[in-house]
């Protein structure tokens, strides 16, 4: 079996974000980077499959500048066999459709049985890329997966729905799945595997050779959330406080309606 795992490098979400000069994305200077958290679940799922079926080939793909190799090396250290780095200094300007088309273009003739992506990226959060790749390749795509069991050529996947509901779907391979938090517990790369990762193949492909489509959407402007008024502190005796609180809730919220 041949598995493709799509990973994205994103800033550590505890970073202090600043806007870039053009005002259309965040400034990438001074940031600490990591693998998109959702993608770690995808990598772990792939490695779990290989542990059960050692002849499985695991390929990780990432699009972006030179620094994304760090996230790829982590995936290799977790157990992915080889990496494909699609070199793109301006990946942040591409919309989900273009990113998906680059991945689809790469995957089209590679005969992957299974494609795993994160449910969304932590920085853009569009949650579109995985599903679009499935569509472009004509594969069934299952989103927000929190359970995954492969039996022969059929996957039984559990999807997370709104309101705590879960749905169980059965899908024949080849297929694409987007992975949600809680699917598994991503492993720490062991030191010996970090060492081995350095010897694994990491192929570079310039994005121009895979990019065929124009963007459908352009990010015009990003901005900080509007500052909200400060909280309200009520003071007084308990009885008095309760009266004030109930009055406020009636006036400003729909709690008692």
């Amino acid at each position: 079996m041949k598995v493709l795992v799509c990973i994205k490098q994103v800033p550590d979400m505890e970073s202090r974000f600043k806007l870039n000069a053009a005002g259309n994305w965040y400034d990438t200077a001074d940031l600490a980077w990591r693998m998109n958290e959702y993608d770690e679940f995808a990598v772990e799922q792939a490695v779990l499959l290989k542990e059960k079926a050692p002849d499985t080939e695991l390929v990780a793909l990432s699009i972006g500048p030179e620094r994304v190799k760090e996230a790829m090396k982590k995936a290799l250290a977790m157990g992915i066999d080889r990496g494909v780095h699609v070199q793109d200094e301006a990946s942040f300007e591409k919309d989900p459709y273009q990113i998906a088309s680059v991945i689809a273009e790469y995957a089209r003739n590679e005969n992957f049985d299974l494609i795993l992506t994160g449910m969304q990226s932590q920085d853009r959060g569009s949650a579109q890329v995985g599903i679009l790749v499935g569509e472009m390749l004509g594969l069934p795509a299952v989103s927000t997966v929190v359970g995954f069991a492969l039996d022969g050529q059929v996957v039984t996947a559990k999807r997370e729905l709104e309101g705590g509901l879960k749905a169980v779907v059965k899908v024949g391979l080849p297929a694409l799945f987007t992975c949600q938090l809680g699917l598994n517990t991503p492993r720490y790369p062991t030191l010996p595997n970090i060492m081995k990762a350095k010897k694994k193949e990491l192929t570079a492909i310039p994005v121009a050779t895979l990019l065929k489509d124009e963007a459908l959407a352009v990010t015009e402007k990003v901005s900080y959330p509007e500052k909200r008024g400060s909280g309200l502190v009520l003071e007084g005796e308990i009885g008095e406080l309760t009266t004030k609180l109930v009055a406020l809730l009636k006036e400003k919220t729909s709690v008692f309606k």
Binding site: E70, K73, A77, Y188, L191, I194, A197, K198
Partner: peptide, 20 residues
């Protein structure tokens, strides 16, 4: 010669120490 990747090792050590 095969230890040029030590920054990644340190990054993983920090993560492990903080989380586990």
């Amino acid at each position: 010669a095969s230890h040029t990747g030590y920054p990644m090792v340190l990054t993983e050590a920090h993560k492990f120490a903080n989380v586990e």
